[in-house]
Nucleic acid binder design. Structure first.
Lengths: 240, 240
DNA sequence: ACGAAAATGGGTAGCCCGTTCCACTTGGTA
DNA sequence: TACCAAGTGGAACGGGCTACCCATTTTCGT
């Protein structure tokens, strides 16, 4: 699914040139900690929290990554590679419709596997230039994918690239709500959306089973308190 | 759409029996402030914020509504009535399929109109017993609605009540991400989902136009900082 | 091995949140 | 009208997060 690199490559990206050995080691620990925290709790985890988890001073974290965006950038660089790679891979599929559906599923699966990444895909941080380049790359590939799938007669003509954005937002909502109690719920959403995208003649994977009602219900009551945080992605709640 | 009560009934529910006149007035101001803040910023607005907006001491707020859930309960009681009423109304429609689609659209519209309500519908607070009763009521009506629509041959047999929950979660995600920059985006999602629910023969409303790409993009870059809050609905970010 | 530069982490200060306490004000009644 | 209890808001407290400073430790080239 992600032919590029191992899920968590031990040597992250470029080891950042002029860094002393111990500094580089700490950088790595910070990235690892942030990756774990972001994956399970979404972005919006406090910097202090990351530093604590990495067992590193707050100052060290600030020195290495001055802003939250910078950290996010570094953390999700490789995931973004995988994201772009998925589009290229889909484009390589001789069957345009299968490439299209495979891509949709792969991307949504990435969101489901990493709540932080789901946030990254639905709201982009202006500062995330490195990620932005990859996104643009994937976007162009996706446009081509759409054209081919429509030409093949399996994708409806009224499908637009914006629909992918909408799907990602919708999927992020489902993932955020169900990740803990019924983590496969998103599959049901995706298979239904594919039905909506397909022309009557296109063949579709069988509809995924909905989660057990009790599991979904537990997903809904999971949060006792709405969480001051941000849970994932919201705006400043204070009316300033 | 909501035949029950005026959008913001001046006299909220029962004026709470044994309260002094001024206390009741303050209660009202708190509810009004909370309603406004929740609607625009989602749940997760701080209690202090509500007190400030209501121009009331923090202590007063705490005394009137001891917990956040209590406040949310009171704020959304009437919205929940409208929610239940919508199901009843849909059930009254002689055309089961039109009742079904109308209900879906009405509920999603409610979510779009009030971000706080979107949160309420996707994650229920255990304490919200009053709301829970209404929810159960609506749920039963919806089950009947499903059965009739399926019997009419327009709703696919594999549609289940859980699909509504999934749709609500998905819609909440879209609404949360686009409310500011492209507030009609949710309509596109809903019309596509209805396509997925319908049997080939069913007639569907025309597909809503997707938002302009630039508007969607602005929606995505809206948030410069991921927001420590919760934006809307997430869990405690601190790893405690 | 030694010393300068790099790197660290604890500490402080400022802000916001939620909770609780308490002296003061207000309302309704006798 | 006068009084007492209900009600109020400000202040204080504890906790978390961010940003910043600086004394101490570690690394690495010589």
């Amino acid at each position: 699914m992600t032919p590029t690199a191992e899920p968590d490559s031990p040597a992250d990206r470029q080891p950042e040139p002029g860094l002393r050995a111990d500094a580089e080691r700490n950088r790595e620990r910070i990235l690892t900690a942030a990756r774990r925290l972001y994956a399970s709790h979404g972005l919006g985890v406090s910097m202090a929290c990351v530093a604590r988890e990495a067992d590193v001073g707050k100052a060290t974290l600030s020195r290495r990554f001055a802003t939250r965006e910078e950290l996010i950038n570094a953390v999700f660089a490789d995931r973004m590679d995988a994201y772009a790679a998925a589009a290229a891979e889909a484009l390589a599929d001789p069957d345009p419709w299968r490439g299209f559906t495979g891509y949709i599923e792969a991307v949504c699966a990435m969101q489901a596997a990493d709540r932080g990444f789901a946030d990254v895909l639905t709201m982009t941080f202006p500062a995330a230039k490195a990620l932005e380049a990859r996104r643009a790359e994937a976007y162009n590939a996706f446009l081509e994918l759409i054209a081919r799938a429509q030409a093949s007669g399996h994708l409806r003509d009224d499908f637009t690239a914006e629909d992918l954005v909408i799907l990602l937002m919708a999927n992020a909502g489902v993932v955020a709500a169900t990740a803990d109690a019924a983590p496969d719920t998103w599959r049901r959403l995706v298979s239904q959306m594919l039905r909506a995208y397909a022309t009557p003649g296109a063949d579709l994977p069988p509809l995924e089973q909905p989660p057990a009602p009790t599991a979904l219900y537990r997903a809904m009551v999971r949060l006792t308190r709405p969480a001051p945080d941000t849970g994932g992605a919201a705006e400043r709640p204070d009316g300033r």
